[in-house]
C-alpha cells in the first residue's frame, strides 16, 4: 500500500477512461438540464437552480478533470484559495449591490 502511494506520488494518479467518460456524460446531462431549466419559470428559484447546476458542473471538472481528488497539500490549497478569492469578490460586490437601495434619494 505504502509502495503504491509512493508510486502514485511520483507519477501521479492515472484516471481510467471510463471515469472521464462518465464525468463528461454528466456534464452533457447537466448542460441539457441548464437549457431545460431556462424554459421553466421557477420564480425566485430561477437563479438558485441555475447556480446549483453550474456549481455542480464546476465541481465535476475540478474533482475529475483537474485531478482535485488525487492531489494533496499545496495544490489543493491553491484550488481552495481560488474559491476563497471568488467568495471575497462576491461578498464585496454583494455588499454594495444589496445596500445601494438603502440610500434615500429624493424622488
Amino acid at each position: 500500500m505504502a509502495k503504491q502511494s509512493n508510486h502514485e506520488a511520483h507519477v501521479g494518479h492515472v484516471t481510467s477512461p471510463t471515469t472521464y467518460l462518465i464525468a463528461a456524460g454528466a456534464l452533457f446531462v447537466l448542460t441539457a438540464l441548464t437549457v431545460g431549466a431556462a424554459f421553466v419559470d421557477l420564480g425566485p428559484l430561477n437563479d438558485l437552480v441555475a447556480l446549483l447546476i453550474a456549481g455542480t458542473k464546476a465541481a465535476i471538472i475540478i474533482v475529475v478533470f483537474m485531478h482535485g481528488r488525487y492531489t494533496s497539500g499545496i495544490t489543493r490549497l491553491a484550488m481552495v484559495a481560488g474559491l476563497i478569492w471568488l467568495a471575497l469578490l462576491i461578498l464585496g460586490v454583494m455588499d454594495d449591490y444589496l445596500t445601494r437601495d438603502w440610500l434615500m434619494t429624493p424622488s
Binding site: W85, L88, G92, D95, D96, T99, R100, W102, L103
Partner: peptide, 18 residues
C-alpha cells in the same frame, strides 16, 4: 491589496456607511 478595491468607487453613490 485584495480588501481595498472599492476605494476607487467612493464617488459612485455606494451606501455611505459601506
Amino acid at each position: 491589496s485584495f480588501l481595498v478595491w472599492a476605494h476607487h468607487m467612493f464617488a459612485s453613490a455606494m451606501f455611505p456607511w459601506l
